[in-house]
Nucleic acid binder design. Structure first.
Length: 610
RNA sequence: GAUCCCGUAGCUCAGCUGGAUAGAGCACCUGCCUUCUAAGCAGGCGGCCGUUGGUUCGAAUCCAACCGGGAUCACCA
């Protein structure tokens, strides 16, 4: 990894070794290091098997020769040992100590600016129902990826497309007109999105009733489903909406307004910021038509039966309609137009990432190919951040069958669990009610977010309600707890003065450890921690490259775990030797800093006490 | 029918750009609070890495076939 200066150094040295020892050229990329397995002495290990042809020697002899060269020529290598074809290198403590010093003076989770501007789209809900667990995976992912990209040196623009028009919202509108008796969020006290969602369900109920009725009257099922009066009404409502009927538009605005108010509350409860820009489908759905016609002129698309098509069979895909015979758009059309519009609106934009479920993999493949065919230079910088569905122990989530996990309910549940645990431990009796409430929300949300983010986004995941509110083990609260422990140490150092400040006391505590060449100053648990910290920039970069927060999430967990082992076995403030005490405290501070920033990248806050 | 994704411990997941004896958490069992927060630590139990072949000095990792699970393939959104 390029961000790992140690590895880069060693690779160069090994390259030199091959030149001087065997008169052989080796590309840096071919030289790979891996962490040394714990049962052997060493920090990093090089496998020499791939290079035996170059050296013309046996594995042990090759490894030994390189090891001797490195120990002699490269100061960071303190010593080495060889086991079979494995060259284990012990890195000088002074290197790790130097790293610690550096980590103390700057944010190692802030990579140099790339100068790139990246747009991330996520959330993109429909306005006919409340947010649920599936949205939460999407939103936490999109938000986290945005922050990771920021930390990795990019400027990020967050956007969503609000699917505010279409048959779905018309269904809610029709049902509300029929059965609503003028109900509003104010009159019933129901959250706006819940209220609109309720009428969407009402619509479905009534539809089913009518279909059954008509079936009983002798109509075939398919016909009954198409001809149900309430469905026809919804379709009529959609036509009126498109024709700009004032009353329909007014009702539409009102009901969407209720939904937005509800969404705002949920976003607040999720502790996720709003977007830099919202695109509304009611505005974007007209986009793309002209672009498609231009493509037709250029010969990128073709006409058949009066419709405009694109032929993606050369790419191994199918043909696809872009404009219907009657000249109207399909979903793809507006996505083409919206993408183009975004790059016009944001001139320096170099990348666009769509956070959308993997059931739309095919759609985005086609979209990207089309934009490439239209000749947009940025088309190769489009990414579909495709994530897997969230399953429940009972099976798939289906909104029609009422098996969805509601976002608001879930947050409430997880916060209640945090409260129950907190009160049982009763460490916080001096907290005010407000402080307790804030803390339990922070902990509950951490459990939920971490649970959803620790899994590779690409993979379908199982949502186990019990595990998601777990506060122990491989969880967000475990990392929070580690942070709080360290902050407690910090406070003691500062003579018990509790300021409530989130600032780290670097100013108060100077780094006083003098790196020296004498080896083995570091205890194994200290070194283990330093190595994990040292790997942080690489983890961040990999997370950013792969658009995968789980890499950073798991890295943070590894650090927290290593810290807790260290904390348990090695005294910090009770250490008599002042230099050691200071060193360990500095180490602790850096762990806290990294944990806090890594959690920030995941959209998770950390408490000063818990 | 075609294409794509996924099969690792009882459960949930890491590891997958090939390397040493495959790792965590949960669950279960044993210890550890008169020393810095026990939401913790130390230890134990638990694996034909879906199956079969191939490539390789070496395969959970790459390739092929098969089995099992999921998704997608509309002049729908």
């Amino acid at each position: 990894m390029m961000t790992d200066p140690l590895q880069a150094r060693l690779e160069l040295a090994v390259q030199r070794a091959f030149q001087e020892l065997f008169n052989a050229e080796v590309a840096l990329k071919q030289i790979g290091f891996q962490p040394t397995r714990p049962e052997f002495e060493g920090d990093v290990t090089m496998n020499v098997f791939p290079f035996l042809k170059l050296s013309g020697k046996a594995p042990e002899a090759t490894a030994t020769a390189i090891g001797e060269f490195l120990a002699r020529e490269e100061p960071v290598v303190a010593r080495f040992n060889v086991i079979k074809g494995f060259l284990n290198l012990v890195i000088a403590d002074s290197y790790w100590l130097g790293f610690l010093q550096e980590a103390g003076t700057r944010d190692i989770l802030a990579l140099p600016s790339t100068g790139k501007k990246v747009m991330v789209e996520y959330a993109s809900p429909n306005t006919n129902k409340p947010l649920h667990l599936g949205h939460m995976r999407n939103i936490f992912l999109g938000h986290s990826v945005s922050r990771i990209l920021e930390s990795a040196g990019n400027e990020v623009v967050r956007v969503q497309v609000v699917n505010d028009r279409g048959i779905h919202i018309c269904k809610s509108m029709v049902a509300w007109q029929k059965f609503g008796n003028g109900e509003t969020p104010q009159s019933s006290g129901l959250k706006g999105d819940k209220l609109v969602g309720k009428y969407y369900v009402e619509f479905d109920k009534e539809l089913k009733r009518q279909v059954q009725e008509q079936e009983a009257g002798g109509k075939p099922k398919e016909q009954a489903e198409k001809e149900a009066p309430i469905l026809l009404e919804a379709q009529e409502m959609l036509r009126k909406w498109e024709a700009n009927f004032a009353e329909v538009r007014a009702l539409w605005s009102t009901m969407n307004g209720w939904v937005y108010e509800g969404f705002r509350e949920t976003f607040k409860a999720m502790n996720v910021p709003e977007f830099d820009k919202n695109y509304y489908e009611s505005q974007t759905y007209v986009l793309g038509k002209e672009d498609v016609l231009k493509g037709l002129e250029k010969g990128v698309f073709y006409e058949k039966d009066g419709a405009v098509w694109v032929d993606n069979t050369p790419e191994g895909l199918d043909e696809k309609v872009l404009l219907r015979r009657d000249g109207t758009s399909v979903y793809m059309t507006q996505d083409i137009g919206t993408a183009i519009k975004r790059f016009e609106e944001y001139p320096g934009l170099s990348q666009l990432i769509y956070t959308v479920g993997n059931e739309q993999d095919y759609h985005f493949k086609v979209l990207f190919i089309i934009l490439k065919k239209l000749g947009f230079p940025w088309a190769s910088e489009l990414h579909h951040l495709s994530y897997g569905m969230v399953d429940l122990p009972s099976g798939k989530m289906k909104s029609r069958e009422g098996t969805v996990v509601d976002a608001d309910d879930l947050i409430e549940e997880v916060v209640n669990e945090a409260r129950a645990m907190g009160e049982q431990l009763s460490k916080l009796d001096d907290f005010s009610e407000k402080e307790k409430k804030d803390l339990y929300e922070m902990i509950g949300l951490a459990a939920l977010k971490y649970y959803l983010l620790k899994v590779d986004p690409k993979k379908r995941m199982l949502f186990d309600p019990a595990a998601s509110i777990d506060l122990q083990g491989h969880t967000g609260p475990f990392i929070q707890y580690t942070y709080a422990r360290i902050r407690s140490l910090n406070r003691r150092v500062m003579a018990g003065v509790w300021t409530g400040s989130l600032k780290f006391p670097e100013a108060e505590i100077q780094f006083a450890w003098q790196p020296s060449t004498t080896s083995d100053q570091l205890q194994p648990l200290e070194k283990e921690l330093l190595k994990r910290l040292h790997h942080t920039p690489s983890a961040l970069l990999e997370s950013a490259d792969k658009l995968d927060p789980s890499i950073l999430a798991n890295h943070a967990y590894e650090i927290a775990k290593a810290y807790n082992s260290f904390y348990q076995a090695v005294p910090v403030l009770k250490e008599e030797d002042g230099r050691k005490k200071l060193f360990r405290h500095n180490l602790s501070i850096d762990v806290a800093k990294v944990l806090k920033k890594a959690m920030w990248c995941l959209g998770i806050e950390v408490p000063e006490r818990m």
